[in-house]
Design a protein around this nucleic acid. Structure first.
Lengths: 225, 225
DNA sequence: CAAATAGTGTCTCTAAGACAATATCGT
DNA sequence: ACGATATTGTCTTAGAGACACTATTTG
């Protein structure tokens, strides 16, 4: 058998963040064909010369096209077929990244955050990719600490709870939430650091324990690939 | 920017089955380079001309190389990099299939079932792929009905429980198991059908309800992509 | 009826949610 | 002291597991 027809190999990254307590996705204005000028997910070719893996390519694309280095980058799924890209039979490895909104610079035209609940029409099969990302994040948030990636370095428990609620789209029980966070043992109170300003009791600030900074706890469900 | 260097696009399928109450994986003797003669996962190029998607390619490979049409075929993850295939920078979309052992014809030399707990050395990164498949199946079995794909058409509850225990590698509570199966409402007793032969009470035979034949219940955890 | 496995009833234990009391701020 | 939000204590409830009992077959 001979080498088959080359296949277009790309990566696409769904970068999710929280704005106004709603999940938003980063969209970039495409600067070349196909779909030049349209808003789309950051994406690009896998470069055999530059990349050591598809994940490397995703990180590179995110850095080059959006100037972002995300601490969380997870492979979602791979989408493929003859019809998803007008250039021909293509295959795209989709990734999902999470970032606190504070670390995200968006300028009006080129980079935009759009709420995932009201997306514009997207080129390729990017709508399906965003759907898969949101579903994955929701699902993992039910049993893992994934939403901490949407908070900054320091956060209060009420704030973290609000983030969980925003991601899950439903209220969570306060007592159970705190019990769970306590059991997980991933957070530590920042000594002496508390919120201030409101006309009410200040809240304790927490941060991820060092051991968990770069290793998200999945409760050993073995879901992550 | 010009089109980048072509990338080798393949699929690999981890077909798991149960033999002697242990998970086994199907390995084929490779008939061409690289690694001709070695045992490896069924795999092959994605054909832009023939396949409508990578999943199609996986189904085709399984059919052509092993003569199998699996009712369950799930995308696992995509593995890529310059070093995993001696032919060059390659990308493989890995799939996981499940099949009852009765439907699997293995001849001594060309096709073999090997226990996942004692795998021979495998070419490429096939060992990692099998690991990912086993992990995924174990994980999903904790909250879904996935193991029914390892049983045949009809099965008893004690048998199904044994399958769960084999997959999970730990005993499961009989009462809870039956309660759960009952709640799920996916099984139905086959009227009048019972096991026979043993010197003991016969067991009721069950089958998947029609609604669930081709739609595995994931308990709405939204894990599947 | 004895042995063996199938199927069920029920108690206990654990985890999650509801509810409400207490704590600590700014005004 | 009052309003507001944070934090904690405890009761209730739902689900999972332990255990033991009943049921049905063959020899």
């Amino acid at each position: 058998m001979v080498e088959p027809t080359p296949i277009i190999c790309t990566v696409d990254v769904t970068l999710l963040t929280l704005q106004d307590d709603m999940l938003h996705v980063l969209l970039l204005k495409r600067d070349r064909e196909p779909f030049a000028g349209a808003l789309a997910l950051p994406g690009g070719y896998v470069h055999a010369e530059a990349d050591q893996s598809a994940e490397d390519a995703a990180a590179r694309v995110l850095k080059e096209k959006a100037g972002i280095v995300s601490p969380y980058l997870e492979q979602l799924a791979t989408f493929s077929g003859p019809g998803r890209d007008p250039r021909g039979w293509s295959l795209s490895v989709a990734y999902c990244a999470l970032l606190p909104a504070e670390l995200l610079a968006v300028d009006g035209a080129e980079r935009q955050l759009r709420p995932v609940a009201r997306l514009p029409a997207l080129p390729f099969d990017h709508a399906r990719i965003v759907d898969a990302a949101v579903q994955r994040v929701r699902s993992k948030s039910q049993y893992s600490s994934l939403p901490v990636y949407l908070c900054g370095e320091a956060f209060t428990l009420p704030r973290l709870q609000a983030v969980y609620e925003a991601v899950l789209g439903e209220p969570v029980n306060k007592v159970s939430f705190r019990r769970k966070m306590d059991e997980l043992g991933m957070l530590e109170a920042i000594p002496g650091a508390q919120t201030s300003g409101g006309a009410h009791r200040p809240a304790q600030l927490y941060r991820l324990r060092r051991e968990f900074r770069h290793a998200l706890s999945m409760l050993d469900r073995g879901i992550n690939v």
